[in-house]
Nucleic acid binder design. Structure first.
Lengths: 247, 247
DNA sequence: CGCTAATTTGACCTGGATCAACTACGGTGG
DNA sequence: CCACCGTAGTTGATCCAGGTCAAATTAGCG
């Protein structure tokens, strides 16, 4: 491994190997996937609601998010994505998009044709299983968001989201020392939580006031992790994070 | 086909064939799955939050639902399931349950060991793909629920849910003529939509008043489908229903 | 018939929305 | 270096959708 130059799909391989051990041929098959790497500017749609997707998008760097627009300017954000994620993996089996995928920040992404993914998963059931699993975790996160929307008050809801985003980043080495990037606006937080940006602002003020967190210049600083966990009954099980199998 | 006695897994085969054509050996492999058929009474847990699942549960008759409990008696319902659904298919790749699955009504279910499912999907990528697709639609429905929770007022939200439940049942022949079973209480509707049962009751009254629907004795009667659709900007794309490939 | 769970209604309350400024700040161009 | 501008964040005042509490009323069901 150390002798090879890092492959563009390394983030994907790392993710798969955190769940299962890949054989040499499996690893080789992945590395042979045809990829098109692109750098996109912030706030740019990657696939749109209504599109027929023909490729998947692996995030190599930066943030992306998924959302849907309703009438009267309403917007619902479904998820935030970081390096290693394939936010539109679901399009592999449901090509007709029912929502949008866009960059949040400037981002580097790798596009992989569905065709190649289908060939890969048909030949290597293990790889198919791990990718499938990934989409299931995606769904588990949706369920967590449903709980937050339906049964948590605003304060708890937002704390819960922060815990999730911190842990997701920590798992891939993007967060640490109680601090992580959070390159999203209060308006985005509002559309992710079903609130208004005004109320997000007030809840953040309250969180600062209680000495739980700080959110400044797109950086989240967690003051007291334990209290944060307690403030929202956070149970990380649903994220199904592995203990860093591969460095 | 007509010469065979109906197999217990026929609802599953029908679902798979509505998406793809199965070869004789694929069909045979499914019919050879070891199943344990049971009839359960209403409101009985099938798998619990925290359990390590070892089998999947195919619903043959009746309703099931998934939910999670929080402190102070809060409950969030994630989904309702009918014949043909495998509500815990996700446990195949994430055995550690992060929520509960229970019957809503008395129900007949078929249990299939994970082991057999793994063997089946490893051998038949096509079957794996269709089952994977099914879990992706599950996720698509979660997204629709997120929108409803986050960005729809109560009335619209509930109308949307009714449209979804009607169409899901219609697709498998359980609804028709603007009428379908809805064997759930107003309290369940409340926990599914993030409201209180009092408010559900008032919204239902309003819906009756506007002549949109009737909900009585666990039967939903749609008075004017078009208005219902319009009242909640319903777009059925996310359900990815097939045009009845197999009868 | 009687018991329990489910539905319905009324009175009142509140978390978060709405509306409307105002402030801070990172560019950008002169 | 500063003036300008657009985006994002902050704050106050007021409002209302939906929650809470409590008490009937009705439906199932053994």
């Amino acid at each position: 491994m150390a002798s090879k130059t890092p492959h563009a799909l390394f983030p994907l391989i790392r993710k798969l190997e955190s769940v299962t051990r890949l054989s040499a041929s499996e690893r080789h098959a992945i590395e042979s996937l045809p990829v098109r790497v692109r750098t996109l500017s912030a706030r740019q749609d990657i696939v749109r609601d209504g599109d027929l997707a023909t490729q998947c998008c692996l995030i190599l760097e930066g943030w992306a998010y998924r959302y849907k627009l309703l009438t009267e300017g309403r917007r619902q954000i479904f998820s935030f994505h970081i390096a290693g994620d394939i936010p539109d993996l679901q399009s592999l089996h449901i090509p007709l998009m029912d929502h949008n995928l866009a960059t949040m920040t400037q981002a580097t992404v790798a596009f992989i044709p569905h065709e190649s993914m289908h060939a890969l998963t048909a030949r290597y059931p293990t790889i198919a299983a791990v990718l499938w699993r990934d989409t299931l975790i995606d769904a588990a996160i949706f369920r967590a968001w449903l709980i937050a929307m339906g049964r948590r008050p605003a304060f708890e809801h937002l704390v819960h989201l922060f815990c999730e985003l911190y842990l997701k980043q920590e798992a891939v080495g993007l967060a640490g020392d109680h601090r992580c990037p959070l390159p999203i606006t209060q308006n985005d937080l509002a559309d992710a939580t079903g609130m208004t940006s005004v109320h997000i602002n007030r809840v953040l003020k309250e969180m600062r006031g209680r000495g739980l967190i700080t959110l400044h210049r797109h950086t989240l600083v967690v003051k007291t992790w334990d209290e944060l966990i307690r403030a929202c009954e956070f149970d990380e099980t649903y994220l199904h994070l592995q203990k860093r199998a591969v460095g």
